[in-house]
Design a protein around this nucleic acid. Sequence first.
DNA 1: CCAGATATGTAGTGTTCACTACAGATGTGG
DNA 2: CCACATCTGTAGTGAACACTACATATCTGG
Lengths: 201, 201
Amino acid sequence: MRMGRPREFNAETALDQAMEVFWRHGYEGATIAQLTEAMGINPPSLYACFGNKEGLLKAALDRYTKLRGVWMDEVVAASTARDVAERMLMGIAEKQTDPANPPGCLLVQGGIACGTGSENVPFELAARRAQNEDQLRDRFVRAKADGDLKESADPAALARYVSAVAVGMGVMASSGADREALRQVADVAVQAVEAQSADRT
Amino acid sequence: MRMGRPREFNAETALDQAMEVFWRHGYEGATIAQLTEAMGINPPSLYACFGNKEGLLKAALDRYTKLRGVWMDEVVAASTARDVAERMLMGIAEKQTDPANPPGCLLVQGGIACGTGSENVPFELAARRAQNEDQLRDRFVRAKADGDLKESADPAALARYVSAVAVGMGVMASSGADREALRQVADVAVQAVEAQSADRT
DNA sequence: CCAGATATGTAGTGTTCACTACAGATGTGG
DNA sequence: CCACATCTGTAGTGAACACTACATATCTGG
């Protein structure tokens, strides 16, 4: 039985606002004052709902990966390994320069290096990135079984590669690269996957 | 004429220590206390020599890029565009997992996203990364003129691509990827450059 | 050996940070 | 309508932060 005064804010929309603050300023750069203002609540509500700043970040990351998961499912639904890579990297070029969001990727902008006391924030982000990589790897394993990738191809290495390019594009986006520049990177990057693809006879 | 008490520490070795702290914790995660302890000096000496925390970062970045510049010169001295890419990315796989340094690249770990008041730190890092990219681009322009790259190849796009992969590898290294994993990424990445190379007849 | 200049170590400064005590508000179960 | 549980806003808390005042130490030029 749930009693007491009901909360007056929607946790998901509040998380969307928090996500944006972390995305733009990073975990350490984001202050509770900025977060609460963006979320439209006061500190006690934040702490009652999310525990502490790191709990809020994790909740925001969960929401981010959940939203992205839908898109990733579309990515790996492409019919060939090459098309998976293209759909992924071209999609990233779009998303990371979408003016509706801060530039780059939350899983990178959130915090690559942190100070004493926040050491596990980078690991938290890395774990989420690894999920994407695993999804790609599984897809490439299947592509190899399908004969879509060469016998010599290493699905895990390919997944790591595509993941690395995606991260690199995120950093470029956050430092001002425009959509066309990212598309060019994606275009070149796809050619490496193409080189690992079996010849279509 | 230089008068007054001479400084008792060596600015370059002190900078090396500061570099390591920024590298490991990022700009915002690094505290003056950590920096002064690593440098073996007291705050007033730091401020007298470098102005403020951001000044120290810039000095550390200058030193970092200077040291790296020597290596980059060797990279672009490779005889083909493909070998330039390979030498660069394989070298990065080594350097970013060198136990003598923190993992990853200072130009990424330093701070991709920062809080209010440090907004130009990410730009500062981006500017240094752009220098590397420019050096690569110039080399690829020459490679195209040499007929080493295809007529359809875009040197600027290739340079952006290699730069993006390097950044992505840095992030992977900082989150625990080992040398072999990075080598695999480099190996795949080089194939895209190979695909842009003219056929050797 | 003295005057001026710069460096150093001690011991702070004000500010901002993440976080919370508390009182009042608003719900549920009986 | 009352006991109780949970949320909310105000107004702070101690700690950590970047940075510095000041007295002292060590140099150069004359």
